[in-house]
């Protein structure tokens, strides 16, 4: 009679008497090691987050030993961060003014007007924009948008580097982010809501704007918030086109450095490890990380909310 241990062989089908099969599996040490490796890989993402925090916090503590908090959160001075924050917020606002209507427009077309087939063709055209490296956008803002579009064509008195052109191109860059997430949110709205609206005699535009868009509002908000986070964190466009001087201004024709622009510029400046400038890099980096973290968490929560709704 064959021994049956459940791992080396299945029971031989027999018509005769048989023993009680052994259902205790063999221990599989190799498999345990593999699974442990998989868990470690997944856990690495958490390690990275913690590492980011540690990497940023350590020089920041050092920084605040050398520089007082009030000197950092000041509007002017060598260590002032507020002008960088206003620079960032200004370009982000311009970017949103461009990207929100256009991104939502594209999303509404794809979700409410396009047939399944046209959507398949048209969606990649929107996503093409996401494939362009930001340094390319920065170059375009600096050498086309400012001199050709703003100065020559629109006859505006803008500086060589200015918040307007950086913000406009930043907006172009985040269109795919907003369009793609907003489309997901709009598509998730149940068909029944649309049919209800059509049944009451509403046309497509009314249905889209008054029924579908409000129903998808938390998802659309998540899309906008994530686009905003992208804009705040983007470096190369602003490093090239927004200016390399701290400038506490709301005049979008002037140049003004942003947080990311400052980090890029200071990092290129060969500051020795441990110097005040080097540490300030990390202080600004931490501030940037915290701001985007909060914004991302808001976005994740909003997405979760609309997923629960439908």
């Amino acid at each position: 009679m064959s021994t049956i241990d459940g791992t080396t062989a299945g029971p031989s089908s027999g018509t005769g008497p048989r023993g009680v099969p052994n259902l205790k599996g063999r221990s599989r040490p190799a498999e345990r090691v593999i699974v442990a490796g998989l868990i470690a890989s997944a856990g690495l993402s958490v390690v990275i987050t913690i590492a980011i925090l540690v990497a940023l916090v350590e020089p920041v503590i050092e920084f605040f030993r050398q520089v007082s908090v009030s000197e950092f959160f000041a509007t002017e001075g060598r260590f002032a961060v507020i002008p960088l924050v206003t620079g960032t917020l200004t370009v982000t606002l311009i970017a949103l003014l461009v990207a929100v209507p256009i991104g939502l427009g594209a999303a509404m077309y794809l979700s409410e007007y396009a047939s399944k087939r046209t959507r398949k063709v048209l969606k990649p055209t929107v996503e093409l924009l996401a494939g362009i490296p930001s340094v390319v956008y920065g170059f375009f803002a600096l050498f086309f948008v400012t001199p050709r579009l703003l100065q020559d064509l629109l006859n505006m008195q803008v500086n060589f580097t200015n918040l307007l052109s950086a913000g406009l191109i930043l907006g172009v860059m985040i269109i795919p982010t907003i369009a793609s997430l907003a489309e997901d949110a709009l598509t998730a709205v149940p068909q029944a809501l649309r049919q209800g609206s059509y049944a009451m005699g509403a046309n497509r535009m009314q249905t889209t704007l008054r029924v579908v868009l409000p129903a998808a509002i938390s998802g659309v908000a998540a899309a906008i918030v994530l686009g905003m986070s992208r804009a705040i964190g983007e470096t190369m466009i602003v490093a090239l086109a927004a200016g390399a001087q701290k400038n506490m201004t709301l005049d979008i024709r002037e140049g003004a450095q942003t947080m990311t622009g400052f980090i890029a510029q200071t990092a290129g400046g060969e500051n020795p490890v441990g110097s005040v400038e080097y540490n300030m890099l990390f202080a600004v980096g931490l501030l940037l990380f915290v701001i985007t973290l909060v914004i991302n968490l808001i976005s994740i929560t909003l997405v979760r909310r609309y997923r629960q709704e439908y």
């Binding site: 958490v46 590492a51 964190g233 470096t235 940037l288 991302n296």
Partner: peptide, 27 residues
């Protein structure tokens, strides 16, 4: 669930912050 949220968040961390992290790792 923590890993899940954390991943979504890491995907949206500004690229320049990864530069800072790499600087720290190399150090």
């Amino acid at each position: 669930r923590i890993i899940e949220v954390n991943l979504q968040n890491l995907a949206a961390v500004p690229s320049i912050v990864y530069g800072l992290l790499a600087v720290a790792v190399m150090a």
